[in-house]
Amino acid sequence: MSLVPTPSQTVGPFYGYALPFPGGAEVAPVGHPDLITVHGYVYDGAGQPVPDALLETWQPAPDGSRGGAPGSMRRDPVTGRIVGRDGVTFTGFGRIATDADGHYAVRTLPPGGVPYLCVLVFARGLLHHLYTRAYLRAEEDALLSAVPAERRGTLLAVEERPGTYRFDIRLQGPGETVFLDFG
């Protein structure tokens, strides 16, 4: 059986009270010594920052396991509010809205077994989300070796100082980020 997929539609401008959640960017357990920060800006085709993009990140745990874990948006049963992660479990999932400057930052742990974080981009104006990867090391793999050399740099996060990586996303134009199609 092969069913026809439901079409995508834009996330629109008004998801802000619904999708972002407290602690969405805090993927690493509290106080973990291996914490890394990945941050950057999302730009449009005119080089302007995009203040209404929503990014999601997904990655293996440091031990390489890919099953994730529930609890990214853990709830308080008394008030119904989101109390966030439990500070111990690594769920592997992050969700971060860009701020008014088009900036985002996610604090997580190094992915096990692969050199990259999976990044998903939603935005007002984007009718169908986009996948990319933030490579923390320039380690050749199936994707990096398939990307033309002159565009490979758009997938490489720059280590600004130990544990802090800069990864900008350009939706269009010069230096346009490499986006992916999984078929």
Binding site: G45, G125, A146, V147, R151, Q172, E176, F179
Partner: peptide
């Protein structure tokens, strides 16, 4: 709003 917010390069198949 889509004008400046979509890639012009083809997606890379994985």
């Amino acid at each position: 709003s889509s004008t400046l917010r979509h890639p012009r390069q083809p997606l890379i198949p994985v």
